[in-house]
Design a protein around this nucleic acid. Structure first.
Lengths: 333, 333
DNA sequence: CTGAAAGCGCTTACAG
DNA sequence: CTGAAAGCGCTTACAG
C-alpha cells in the first residue's frame, strides 16, 4: 500500500484557500498576498507538500529535463565532463536524464526514451547521431548538441576543441624540438576528433617534407600499447609518438618503457586531453589541454539558447586549449 | 513557436477510433482487436505519435524513473559503476535521473529534486544520507539503497563489498609472503569503506603481534602520494603498504619509485577495486577485485524488490571478491 | 488578491 | 472489443 504524497488540494483544504492559490504560492512571480503565502507555506511544510514536477511539466509543456547521452567511456576525461554537465545544468535549473550508449551512434531506442519523457534538449557526448534521429528530434522541436564530435552530413550544433589546429601546433612543437620521425596513433577512426587530429598533425609535417607514420588505435590503452609496440619494432622507429588522447599516449609510454627505451631521450610522447593522470609523476605526460569548463559552458548555453529561439542554421563551435609541456618531450640537442 | 507533439486524441481522430482505444493499443495486455491495433499503430507511426511518459506516470502513479546520486568521482571505479547501473536499470525498464553531489552527504536539495520528479527509488553511490533525508524518503515511500557504503545510525538498505574480511585476507596474504612492517593509507576516514578496510587489516596484524603504521589519505592520488612519502621517510620504513583503493595504491607506488625504492623488493603495494589501470604493465598492481557486476545486480534487484513489498527491516548485503596477485607483491625470500 | 473552471495527455473502471 | 467519462496534480486565463 503506497502512501500517496499530499497534493495541492489537501494543502488548500487545510490552509482554507483554493487550490489555485496554493499553486500560485509555488509559482514564482504570481500574485499572492504575503499573509496568504505565509499560511500556505506553513501548511505545506507541515504536510510535507512538494509540487509534482511531472504534472507541472505536463501542463506547462516544460519539463526542465535535459537528456544526456554518453558513450561507454573508459576515458576519465568524460567522467569529468559528465560531472560538469550535471552541475552546470543544475545551476540553470535543469535535471539530467542519463543514458549510456554502447554504440558509436546513439540508437533509436535511447532517443525514444528522451522523447517520451519530453526532454527539452539533448546533449550527446563522444558519440554520433544518425541523420534519421536528428530529423526526428527536429520534428519534435527538440534541440540537440554534439559534444566533442561534429558531423558534416548531419546538420547539428556541436562544440569541440579545434582539433585540427591543436594537432598542427603539436606537430609544430615537436618539429621545433628537433624531432623528425613522427608517428600518430589514431583513436576510433570514424570519429571526427581522431580524424581532425590526424589531419592537422600530418598536414603540418607533410608541409615540412616529413611523411608521418600511422597506426590504428581506438582510444584505449590496450590497443595503443600494441600499436606502439608495432611502431617501435619497425625498421624506421619513430622518435616521437602523438596519441589521439591521453590514454592512448599512456599506452605508448608504457610500450616504450617495456621495450627498454628512454622517454624522452629515445622517444617523445604527446597526448591529448590533459586528464589528471597525465600530471602524475610517473607519467609527466606532455599533452594538449582541452578547456573543459569553457566547452561545457558553451555547450549548455548554446543548447539553452536553441531552446528559446527559432531554428537557426546549426553551427559548429570550436575552442582552443593549449599545450602543456611536461617530461615526455624535450629539446633534442 | 514550439510545434506540439501529436497526442492520442489526434491519432484517434485520424484512425477513427476513440482515444481510449489508442491508449489501449499502447498499453501492453489491453484488450484490442488485431485489426484495430494494426490500424492505430499505422496511423501512430505516420503521425509520429509516442505516448507521453509524464502523463502516463501521473495517472498510473508510476514513473519508471530511478534517482541515482553519485559523489564527485575521480575514481574510475565509479565510472564503471555508473555505466553498469544505467544499463542494468534500462534492462528492467527504468530510466535514470542523475545527480552529482559534491558532499559526503547527499543534500536536501538533491533529494527534493528526486521527490518532485516522483522517482520510484533512489540509489546512492559513494556517499551518505542524513537520517533526516532517509526519514523523508521513507515517509514518501521511496526506497533507498546505499552502494558501497553503509551506516549503522541510519536504517537503510545497502550493498557493499565485505571490506572487513577482504582487508583481513590482504593482511594475511602479505603476512604469508613474509612482510612484517605494514602500513595502511586510509581513504576519507568518515567512510565505512575505509574504516572497515582499516579494521580488518589492523585486527589481523594485531593478532599476529604486529602494530601497523597508518597515514591518512582521502582516496585521491595526491594525498596518497604525500602519505606514502611520509611513511617511506620515517625511521621505521614499512615493507608493505595497503592503500584504501587502487588510486591510493598507485600514489604510493609512484612515491616509492620517486624515492628510488624497488617494488616489490624494497616495498610491496596492494590496492583495492581492481580498476582497469591496475593491470597496466606499468603498474601491475596487486589488488582486491570487487565483483562489480554482482554488486550492481544485487543493488538493483534489492531496490526493485523493496519497491514492491512492504517495508521490511533494512539489511546490509555483502559480497566477497578476491585477491588479484600481480607484480607489486612477491614472496620474500 | 482570490476562486471556479478548463485543460495538459494519459489510464481505467463502467457500461454496452 | 469499444466508447464516454472521470481523474492524476498541476497552471492559468477569466471574472470578480
Amino acid at each position: 500500500m503506497k502512501k500517496k504524497p499530499v497534493n495541492a488540494m489537501e494543502v488548500a483544504r487545510v490552509a482554507k484557500v483554493s487550490q489555485s492559490t496554493v499553486s500560485r504560492v509555488f509559482t514564482p512571480g504570481s500574485n499572492v498576498s504575503e499573509k496568504t503565502k505565509r499560511k500556505v507555506l506553513e501548511v505545506a511544510k507541515e504536510l510535507g507538500y512538494r509540487p509534482n514536477a511531472l504534472a507541472r511539466g505536463l501542463i506547462m509543456n516544460k519539463t526542465n529535463i535535459v537528456g544526456l547521452a554518453m558513450r561507454d567511456m573508459e576515458n576519465p576525461f568524460y567522467h569529468e565532463v559528465l560531472g560538469k554537465f550535471t552541475k552546470g545544468l543544475r545551476d540553470k535549473g535543469y535535471h539530467v536524464l542519463f543514458v549510456y550508449t554502447e554504440n558509436d551512434e546513439i540508437q533509436q531506442e535511447e532517443i525514444t526514451q528522451f522523447l517520451e519523457y519530453s526532454v527539452e534538449g539533448v546533449i550527446v557526448t563522444d558519440a554520433y547521431l544518425s541523420s534519421k534521429v536528428v530529423t526526428q528530434l527536429h520534428e519534435n522541436n527538440i534541440p540537440v548538441i554534439l559534444f566533442n564530435r561534429y558531423s558534416k552530413d548531419v546538420p547539428c550544433y556541436s562544440v569541440s576543441c579545434d582539433n585540427y589546429t591543436a594537432a598542427r601546433q603539436i606537430a609544430s612543437y615537436l618539429y621545433e624540438q628537433g624531432y623528425r620521425k613522427m608517428a600518430y596513433i589514431t583513436g576510433r577512426t570514424n570519429t571526427s576528433t581522431s580524424q581532425d587530429r590526424q589531419r592537422g598533425f600530418c598536414e603540418f609535417l607533410q608541409e615540412k617534407g616529413i611523411e608521418p607514420m600511422m597506426e590504428e588505435g581506438d582510444y584505449t590503452y590496450e590497443k595503443a600499447y600494441d600499436a606502439a609496440i608495432r611502431l617501435l619494432k619497425s625498421s624506421q622507429r619513430p622518435d616521437a609518438i602523438f596519441g589521439a588522447n591521453d590514454i592512448t599516449a599512456l599506452g605508448a609510454l608504457d610500450a616504450a618503457e617495456a621495450m627498454g627505451l628512454n622517454v624522452p631521450n629515445d622517444i617523445a610522447v604527446v597526448g591529448f586531453d590533459n586528464i589528471k593522470m597525465a600530471s602524475w609523476p610517473s607519467h609527466e605526460l606532455t599533452t594538449w589541454e582541452q578547456p573543459v569548463d569553457e566547452m561545457i559552458e558553451l555547450t549548455i548555453n548554446t543548447l539553452l539558447n536553441e531552446m528559446k529561439i527559432e531554428a537557426v542554421e546549426p553551427v559548429s563551435k570550436l575552442v582552443s586549449g593549449r599545450l602543456i609541456e611536461r617530461g615526455t618531450t624535450r629539446k633534442k640537442i
